[in-house]
Write a protein that binds this DNA or RNA. Sequence first.
DNA 1: GAATTAGGTTTATATTATAAACTACTTTAT
DNA 2: ATAAAGTAGTTTATAATATAAACCTAATTC
Lengths: 95, 95
Amino acid sequence: MSDFKDLDPLLHSQLRLAVMSLLMGVQSAEFVYIKEKTGATAGNLSVQIDKLSNAGYIGVSKSFKGKKPVTSCSITKKGIEAFESYVNSLKTYLK
Amino acid sequence: MSDFKDLDPLLHSQLRLAVMSLLMGVQSAEFVYIKEKTGATAGNLSVQIDKLSNAGYIGVSKSFKGKKPVTSCSITKKGIEAFESYVNSLKTYLK
DNA sequence: GAATTAGGTTTATATTATAAACTACTTTAT
DNA sequence: ATAAAGTAGTTTATAATATAAACCTAATTC
């Protein structure tokens, strides 16, 4: 693509982009909170979080809040860089 | 999606977005020109142009330049509106 | 006149997104 | 005590999408 920069396919997905956008603004967020904010189904969110985690864009930690399992996600340095790079690439398409 | 606006799936595709972005800036553009500017393969471009055309986002006209077939594309009013709406929705993900 | 090039289109395949079904456990009602 | 319902996810199956490879037709070039 000569005039347009390639878009990281991992970020060029509505739900994954929403997750990353959300995590850009906070220290960490729980699975259920992300689910609500994005409106995603649990299954879809689970899959996409896995992908972001496998790419090293986010960190995932599982613990318990009382007796309930809690999955917490936070963006990594690599994830922040990828997000910023994606936004920059995207700009080549918007003007 | 509560915090994030849905992204038109037709535009949320690297190649189709590039085509639309390109057409936003010109009156019309030929297939071969778009192919060069986007770096796409002919087959892929053909398919994506079809989709944009079927959606009414672009108009496609076929003619001859001397003896060679030429496919010209131009964005429609509907296409301009869709592109602008897409960009607005996208903004909910970028801040 | 056979091979190559130009300008595409069609079809097949690989990838992706999404939802439906399932697991494991906890809380509430009977 | 146990059955039913809810919470917090994961796994698997299916539908949709993107992409490339193969193909087609006509025009040049060797």
